[in-house]
């Protein structure tokens, strides 16, 4: 799980990188190839996004202390 804001930033950049790759690939890959290629990135985006949401659910009070 994400432990601090540095890890939050890294996670957001990680997801953003994949989203950028997919946004470009969906225009250039053949549909069948895109579907297969995207499957790994989409699963990873889903997993890391869940971690980001879990982190953002809580206030930063314990972190500041």
């Amino acid at each position: 799980m994400i432990q601090n804001d540095v890890e939050l930033q890294a996670s957001q950049e990680y997801v953003l990188r994949f989203e950028r790759i997919l946004a470009a690939a969906r225009k250039t890959y053949l549909p069948e190839a895109y579907e297969a290629m995207a499957s790994s990135y989409l699963a990873e985006i889903e997993r890391v996004n869940a971690e980001i949401l879990a982190y953002l659910k809580h206030v930063a009070s314990t972190e500041a202390a």
């Binding site: 890294a10 790759i21 250039t28 290629m37």
Partner: peptide
């Protein structure tokens, strides 16, 4: 990826695989 993904994007992914969660 296949080579339909640009060289720059492929290199960006390779940099990403080298980046730890603590940046």
């Amino acid at each position: 990826v296949n080579a339909e993904t640009s060289f720059a994007d492929t290199e960006d992914l390779i940099i990403g695989w080298q980046t730890r969660r603590d940046l």
